[in-house]
């Protein structure tokens, strides 16, 4: 039935409770393991050491620089890929003849992991920003296409027929029927696309970069700075969750009629 947004307050806290408890337990286990000596010294930092490493990075400016480089890459790649993927998804979802032509090709390309394309992207475009942005855009395009295509092809035919019999011309049928009807799928596509952008970002930066969160992980790995690596992973995790929460909130705002 109709989805009403849950007001923040005791109910939300009630749902957060178990999650907080589990996170606390994991943190405690991590601390105990790091302190127990079961892991070789230097290979597992405590939570405190991880936060200290994070603070170090924040103080000397590497964190800000890496974050800026990674966000610019992921953001630009995501924007390009999401735009093209949505456009293609709307086209193939709405036009069966186009879908028959394009879907087999895209279905073949989709399972090839983006990381497998890093050497090719480097060979074609060098190790500059273009290769990274295009790699991320490509991975996002395929992910977003799949969701949008599926969503658009499920738009009930009676909605489109009703609009036509009410005299709505093509541009109104797109803007006022197809677009809102597919909006829940579009927002799900963007959420999935954002997680794929993060995956592709790491793959692209590991292939060679001068700054970036994953690049920093590689450098820290070479110097066995496990505390810094933990800090970097923490940042990647927080980044992923933050982007997803942002898009989920947008979804509740713009697609309240969705099935979710």
């Amino acid at each position: 039935m109709h989805a009403t947004p849950t007001p923040p307050g005791p109910a939300a806290l009630g749902r957060l409770g178990p999650a907080l408890a589990a996170a606390g337990a994991a943190l405690g286990l991590w601390y105990a393991l790091a302190r127990s000596g079961a892991v070789a010294p230097g290979l597992l930092p405590t939570p405190g050491q991880t936060v200290a490493a994070l603070a170090d990075g924040a103080r000397d400016g590497t964190l800000a620089g890496d974050l800026a480089a990674s966000l610019a890459r992921a953001g630009q790649g995501f924007a390009l890929g999401a735009l093209l993927g949505s456009a293609l998804g709307f086209a193939t979802g709405h036009l069966p003849w186009l879908s028959a032509a394009v879907t087999p090709l895209v279905s073949f390309l989709r399972p090839i992991p983006a990381i497998a394309l890093v050497p090719l992207a480097t060979a074609w475009f060098g190790i500059g920003e273009t290769a990274k942005r295009l790699l991320i855009a490509y991975a996002v395009l395929l992910a977003v296409w799949l969701y949008v295509h599926d969503g658009v092809s499920r738009v009930p035919v009676t909605h489109l027929r009703a609009a036509r019999s009410l005299g709505a011309p093509l541009h109104r049928r797109f803007a006022e029927v197809l677009l809102p009807a597919a909006a829940p799928a579009l927002l799900a596509a963007l959420r999935y696309g954002a997680s794929v952008a993060l995956l592709a970002l790491v793959a692209a930066e590991l292939g060679g970069a001068e700054a970036g969160l994953a690049y920093r992980l590689q450098v820290d790995g070479q110097f066995l700075r496990v505390d810094r690596m933990f800090a970097g992973l923490l940042v990647l995790g927080v980044l992923g969750v933050a982007v997803d929460l942002l898009l989920a909130a947008a979804g509740r705002r713009f697609a309240h009629w969705g099935p979710s």
């Binding site: 009930p156 009676t158 909605h159 027929r161 009703a162 609009a163 036509r164 019999s165 009410l166 005299g167 709505a168 006022e176 029927v177 809102p180 009807a181 909006a183 697609a255 309240h256 009629w257």
Partner: peptide, 27 residues
């Protein structure tokens, strides 16, 4: 299809993202 022939379906075919008034205003 054309607006000279109005159509009512068994599955209602209302637009779920519009209120009742919004659905009528679409027409």
């Amino acid at each position: 299809p054309g607006p000279d022939r109005g159509l009512v379906f068994q599955q209602y075919a209302l637009f779920p993202w519009r209120t009742a008034r919004g659905n009528v205003e679409f027409a």
